[in-house]
């Protein structure tokens, strides 16, 4: 079950993506996304852009296993998540995926560290300490080390999104999936976040896929996929 990770020279691990014959339909049967073939090597970064309604987020949800495709295969390493049960896909996300959302999705009543280490509350007991330590280390690295205990409602948008990044990184994911991560931020905050995000694949061999309209983020990633009407219409390397 545990996917084979690609190990690079530095010992970092990542998971490559392989999509084939993917069809995602709305509950009423209307086609939403159709991707014939897509390969993303482990350790690379991809931006997905396109007009709204093009199916970018739906594709991202399918890659994270939140949406089950009608047909096709989605391999992360050697695991076909389209064949997994709902519970197994959830476990796959817990163990290998870091998710970042446009509007952060933090618990306002929790402190910064408790939000970043949220996964510790449902992780197996043996991994809880690790998770909290990693979350703490990521907050430190993202410049929030001193304020991890402050309640989230006192943080700025940029700080919030960095807490969300620390949360996404707390399980040491092989894959990071981000949905418009800079859209809710001012320019300065967005630029700082882009620096942080762009460093992720490079340093640890993680695979990063980000849906974004932000040219600054697009410019920093290895590859750009452009979608329109549910299809990938352009695939260019940065």
């Amino acid at each position: 079950m545990r996917p084979t990770r690609v190990r690079d020279a530095a010992g970092h691990t990542g998971l490559g993506l392989s999509v084939a014959g993917l069809e995602i339909r709305a509950p009423d049967g209307r086609p939403l996304v159709s991707v014939g073939a897509l390969l993303v090597p482990a350790g690379s970064s991809v931006a997905i852009r396109g007009p709204s309604g093009a199916g970018k987020s739906t594709l991202l949800h399918a890659l994270s296993g939140l949406v089950q495709p009608a047909t096709g295969r989605i391999f992360w390493g050697d695991t076909d998540i389209s064949r997994l049960s709902d519970a197994a896909r959830t476990r796959f996300r817990r163990d290998h995926v870091g998710l970042i959302f446009q509007d952060f999705l933090l618990f306002e009543e929790l402190g910064g560290l408790d939000n970043a280490a949220l996964a510790a509350s449902f992780a197996p007991a043996a991994r809880r300490m690790d998770l909290r330590q990693r979350a703490d280390a990521w907050l430190e690295r993202l410049g929030l080390g001193q304020i991890g205990l402050r309640r989230v409602d006192s943080f700025s948008g940029g700080e919030r999104q960095r807490i969300a990044v620390a949360r996404a990184m707390s399980n040491d994911p092989a894959v990071i999936l981000a949905d418009e991560p800079t859209a809710s931020l001012d320019r300065a905050s967005a630029n700082r976040l882009i620096d942080d995000l762009a460093a992720l694949p490079q340093e640890a061999g993680r695979t990063l896929i980000a849906v974004t309209h932000d040219p600054a983020l697009v410019a920093r990633l290895d590859r750009v996929l452009t979608m329109a009407e549910g299809r990938i219409v352009e695939d260019s390397h940065g």
Partner: peptide
Amino acid sequence: ALLRAIGAGR
């Protein structure tokens, strides 16, 4: 829903 998305079981 966020909990479920980041890997918490039902």
